[in-house]
Design a protein around this nucleic acid. Structure first.
Lengths: 233, 233
DNA sequence: TTCCATGTTTAGCCTTAACTAATAATATTG
DNA sequence: CAATATTATTAGTTAAGGCTAAACATGGAA
């Protein structure tokens, strides 16, 4: 049992595959071999090999040439890994002074080494948070997540006021850039203009200096917002 | 590069071997193949194989059939792992409510996954502690450790008053038992009697109820004490 | 409908790190 | 000092999890 990661008995790789497949599945509806390979930075044949092992152990269902789906067991495992990841991110930022652009990498390694006990202790110390530092919902202990109800900034109509609620934790360069623009979670702004043909979007912050900033369409697509008025909680 | 553990580029196994060899070297003067195998719960041929790899990478010097010694590089690496382990133990007990009998296992896994940055942040949050929860000195960032100046309880003369300063973190059963006897770090007691032929030792706690307890010789050997009067710091 | 691009899988190889069985070196003891 | 017991090493296997190169599906365009 060379690279096994403690009590759960699943290797680091196994956990990474399950987590990635879960994310692709919820984003794209299905997980293609090449998408998994891209996300994990491995070659496609490595994915085929692992998919074989994982479906042999009942963690996912594989239709050759068609893609992959998590089984019940696989999904539960993925959720546990995701919970560990997000609690870790929250803990590191809240208690140890990490910034939102540097936690991902650290959590990525720790999520395979921490025990469930440690995660629950951290969650307790944090008051059982519902969201990680990037706005992603933290799965509960029993494996349920709220699907976040957000609108891409790229789809917020001109004139509306919105609040930034969700960003991706993957690209730390991008996160640093967002921070430099003043785009932190919870910040409120109005959409001033939107150029056509997927052009840039201008926003004005609601808070005092009321600065304007221009963000590219691609970037705007990756920013999850809640429009003021559609607000639920 | 299957099971490599992040930036340092050393696998989990590699780090475990180096740490174990360091501990054996300082305890027994040298590290025998079979002692390493015992400590890591692997078969002796596995040790021979790893020793080959490690000495090929310049982390230790191996004289066949004679044993093994860390090189400068190997020792520095071992110290970094040990620092990570002990800071983790201290952090988990001080900040997350772990007891001294349950931290070892957790730290054993985490020590291979945490970054040096995280360890330094934890150390900072703890006020740069010098000792872990079992009394073991924490190596500094530059790789130096104080050799603890303690006497086995088994060698404290009758009539002397001593303070418990150091216990092994390895056996959690034992640690629970010690706690149940009231034998925590810093506790002060007098040696009331010592039976001959490696027989049991009776102590009386200095603190109010002044209970007496009897501990076996073997156990007493593993308890590091400082005799009151010999006290330095 | 055949052909081609794209994407997937198979075949075959490598490294790490474990194992067992067999052999070799060292230590102990009669 | 030889015989035996202990300890270490070599030989050969296994499983995970990567890789490249080659073969195989599938779906869109000619």
């Amino acid at each position: 049992m060379s690279a096994l990661s403690r009590q759960r008995g699943l290797s680091r790789s196994t956990e990474d595959y399950l987590k990635t497949i879960y994310e692709l599945e919820t984003r794209d509806g299905a997980a293609q071999t090449s998408a998994i390979a891209d996300a994990l930075a491995v070659a496609p044949p490595s994915v085929s090999g692992m998919v074989k092992r994982l479906s042999d152990s009942g963690l996912l269902a594989h239709v050759p040439y068609r893609g992959v789906q998590l089984t019940q067991v696989g999904r539960r495992t993925a959720m546990r890994v995701l919970r560990r990841h997000r609690i870790l991110e929250k803990y590191l930022t809240a208690k140890l002074g990490y910034d939102w652009d540097s936690v991902h990498e650290e959590a990525e390694r720790l999520e395979h080494a921490v025990s469930d006990e440690l995660i629950e202790r951290m969650a307790m110390a944090l008051g059982n948070p519902e969201f990680d530092p990037h706005g992603a919902p933290i799965p509960t202990k029993d494996g349920t997540v709220a699907v976040p109800e957000v609108t891409s900034l790229s789809e917020v109509p001109v004139g509306e006021t919105a609040e930034l609620r969700l960003v991706s934790d993957k690209d730390s360069e991008l996160l640093r850039y967002l921070r430099s623009l003043g785009l932190r979670l919870g910040v409120v702004f109005e959409v001033v203009s939107r150029q056509p043909f997927r052009g840039p979007i201008t926003i004005r912050f609601a808070a005092p200096p009321q600065d304007e900033e221009v963000v590219g369409y691609e970037l705007a697509q990756s920013l999850g917002c809640v429009i003021r008025g559609d607000e639920v909680g």
